[in-house]
Design a binder for these strands. Structure first.
Lengths: 251, 251
DNA sequence: CCCCATTTCCGTAGGCCATACGGAAACAAT
DNA sequence: ATTGTTTCCGTATGGCCTACGGAAATGGGG
């Protein structure tokens, strides 16, 4: 399915929800059975367990023991709920400003990666028109402050920021993709690749792919760790090299 | 919606489709009204125009003037169709091995980016358990050959490969997200941000976000180009710095 | 105590989706 | 013309989001 995202909903309403500005206390009328926080928490729980595809309004309502349509009293729609979910889990990053600028950027990357690990459905949430809530904004401030401390020119800071942000979210997403698929399809990555052994037997052409063959013969793929370990170390390696490049470009 | 992907379908069947190994000519029986190629082409056309979310089996069948269920004679299911679509558009890259290893990696990045530009729905296709077809494999061979020429150790080549691949696909995905959203929601990125002017007026806290405020005041965000231009130059910048880092790490 | 404005709850229904099943239709060989 | 084989596709099931409108709960005023 396509990436989930907030749409044309009233920005003012969505922002008020993101920053938890209650519309104002209601002196009369029926008492709410559920709150926005409860809805978001339940939605996150469902998505954590069964993926974003399983996070339907009906499923969340069931989780809370209320009717499906009751949710729409508190939340404009599914897209806005996903925005709330994303900003909420981004707040879990708990960023502590310690060390030099490089340490802080790596800290940011690690914390963000941890969010994706804990909430694999974040892979399916687009971040180009992000939820402008505290979770996202605090993160932006943190990286920008770190990059600004590096000595880059202001204009360069913004360019480097987009590059770092893209790398972190992209790498975290692909790192998490595998476990998300394992969870939703019930098949592990290793098992998936194992079932495709046929490919190497019946389709791989040594003459068409000399570089891959050479690397294979050189033992480049004789790794002990699991697939997940390989991806993780590549994540660290890539960020390191990216920061090396940024640092080197300043001189 | 969650990322679309091929599932537990019979790998042998899917591989045969990807590499276009026809099951064997049928001497008797009713003549097919449509071919696999026609189905894939129609599906790509629909997804290009209306996004992967609109690419339903019914929609594709309608496009071809056949019944929905007829498609299932030629393709096991929707997941496998998406695999075929992805591998097909990846074949459009037309990679020419010219220049040094850096030029070739950048060439690969540019061609891959072009695929995402032409087919924004690729953002929604997971690449951790990729379609093992010619489109993907030829690309892998190309980058691996380039990286192997850089002088890195074989083990290092594979690590760098994952980092580069992650960056390229991640950056291309985020670069394309905006236009995909513009296409499916009918609202441009600039219009979207404009509607969120309220945020800066009512929610942005100068004291909470000093680094952002300082950058703003320093004119770091006074760019002439569009949002898309900014993202593109950050893409180039990021890849450059990543390759700088990889190159520097060899010495 | 009753009434009523106000607010929340939620059943129904419409219009999408993927795909299992099984029969109808087309075709080649006999 | 019959038969075997293959493709085509109508129907049905069970899911999804959410517009609509009425039922139920609540607190205040008479």
């Amino acid at each position: 399915m396509a990436a989930e995202r907030s749409g044309g909903g009233d920005p003012a309403r969505t922002l008020a929800l993101l920053w938890r500005r209650p519309p104002e206390p209601k002196p009369v009328g029926r008492k709410p059975k559920v709150s926005v926080d409860q809805i978001v928490t339940a939605a996150v729980a469902v998505a954590d367990r069964e993926g974003l595809g399983a996070m339907s309004m009906a499923r969340v309502a069931q989780e809370l023991g209320v009717g499906t349509m009751s949710l729409y009293t508190h939340v404009p729609g599914k897209a806005e709920l996903i925005d709330l979910m994303a900003d909420t889990v981004l707040q879990e990053r708990d960023l502590t400003p310690e060390g030099g600028w490089r340490e802080r950027v790596k800290h940011y990357a690690d914390r963000t990666r941890a969010v994706y690990q804990a909430h694999p459905w974040m892979r399916d949430v687009s971040m180009v028109r992000p939820p402008l809530g505290p979770g996202l904004m605090d993160g932006q401030e943190f990286v920008l402050a770190a990059l600004a401390d590096s000595g880059l020119e202001p204009r360069q800071v913004t360019v480097a920021h987009v590059a770092v942000e893209g790398f972190v979210h992209g790498a975290a997403a692909s790192e998490v993709d595998d476990q998300q698929l394992a969870a939703t399809t019930g098949e592990s990555g290793d098992s998936w690749w194992g079932a495709r052994q046929v490919f190497w037997d019946d389709y791989f052409d040594v003459e068409r792919y000399p570089a891959m063959t050479a690397l294979w013969n050189a033992g480049a793929y004789d790794t002990e760790g699991t697939l997940a370990d390989t991806i993780t170390s590549s994540f660290d390696y890539g960020l390191d090299k990216l920061l090396d490049g940024i640092e080197g470009g300043m001189r």
